[in-house]
């Protein structure tokens, strides 16, 4: 292992399906050990293909993937041992019991039986009292947790969650987030894809934005929001303004609503007394705001900005 701090190292990965569709157009990505990495992208961007290639479900066309230092093709056994996958679709063996299906998953990965571990796992996921229940009798949210239990059954170092909270209610989503954080505490690297940008904002240490098979941005969440984030302050004015006074022209001000609203856009990276200066200037020019609203662009705004660029 050359880079023990790297959980997954992907270089120049491409995937072209048999029908000619290029799902991945050259992905380079390093995922650090122990981080929560969120992969964001619109439908068909290549998120699931990327995950499937790492997990061995899709054969890459070119490029290489190393999982904990092991090549995903040449050393596929060691590479796959390190990974647990929760796919997007709720695909379960409907007639199996929870206990059996989770034990089956552990067996597939060649691990000896460990009822103590499985018991703890099911308890952590609040599935213990359902252990003898057939999966088809469980609710959607419980099925999702069964899938997570299956993925964790062989004690992987890396967990993939492909759209883990799609169709899950708010309460359950929050409890799932807590569980993912608890996993991170135990040293598990988590890679999740999501449609809920709020989820990435809430959970992720780093974010990768993927579109049309390319990673547009890979940044820590804070850097991304800092770099791309816009701050705006909107002043509702007591007296309508005809035009922006020339003395204020070096501020990025926009006058709307018949001169009753003045919007000031500023860069979050430039720290200074801009706002207080501006307020001073307002005083001198007899501009009287009655209301001030401030906005900070969300990850969602940044995302849309990136994808539509």
């Amino acid at each position: 292992m050359t880079q023990p701090q790297t959980a997954i190292a992907i270089s120049s990965l491409t995937k072209t399906y048999a029908n000619g569709f290029q799902a991945l157009a050259g992905i380079d990505l390093d995922i650090k050990r122990g981080e929560i990495f969120a992969l964001l992208g619109p439908n068909g961007a290549g998120k699931t293909t990327l995950i499937s290639a790492i997990c061995g479900i899709v054969q890459p066309t070119t490029g290489s993937i190393k999982v904990c230092g092991y090549d995903s093709v040449a050393d596929y056994r060691q590479a796959r041992m390190a990974i647990g996958l929760v796919p997007q679709e709720l695909t379960t063996d409907a007639f199996e019991s929870v206990w059996n299906t989770v034990s089956f998953s552990r067996g597939l990965f060649g691990k000896p039986r460990n009822p103590v571990y499985i018991e703890q796992l099911l308890k952590n996921l609040s599935l213990w009292d359902k252990k003898d229940e057939q999966i088809r009798r469980l609710s959607g949210g419980m099925k999702r947790r069964v899938m997570i239990a299956k993925a964790l059954s062989h004690e992987p170092e890396i967990l993939f969650l492909d759209e883990p909270t799609a169709g899950v209610d708010v309460e359950l989503r929050k409890s799932m987030w807590a569980q993912v954080r608890a996993l991170q505490q135990t040293g598990v690297t988590v890679i999740l894809t999501t449609h809920y940008i709020e989820e990435a904002e809430e959970m992720a240490d780093r974010i990768g934005v993927i579109n049309k098979g390319r990673l547009i941005v890979t940044e820590s969440k804070d850097t991304l929001m800092h770099k791309m984030g816009k701050r705006q302050m909107a002043f509702t004015l007591r007296d309508a303004l005809q035009a922006i006074p020339p003395a204020l022209s070096h501020y990025a001000l926009v006058l709307t609503e018949g001169g009753r609203k003045l919007t000031y856009t500023y860069d979050a990276t430039q720290n200074g007394n801009d706002v207080s200066d501006l307020l001073e200037q307002f005083k001198t020019h007899h501009i009287r705001p009655t209301e001030i609203d401030s906005y900070r662009s969300s990850l969602e705004d940044i995302f849309i900005q990136l994808v539509e660029a």
């Binding site: 997990c55 061995g56 479900i57 596929y76 056994r77 060691q78 796959r80 041992m81 990974i83 996958l85 796919p87 679709e89 695909t91 379960t92 063996d93 998953s105 597939l108 990965f109 060649g110 299956k150």
Partner: peptide
């Protein structure tokens, strides 16, 4: 057909 094959394919088998 059901999709559970994902698990077999992603296992070290």
């Amino acid at each position: 057909f059901t999709g559970t094959i994902y698990e077999i394919l992603s296992a070290p088998l």
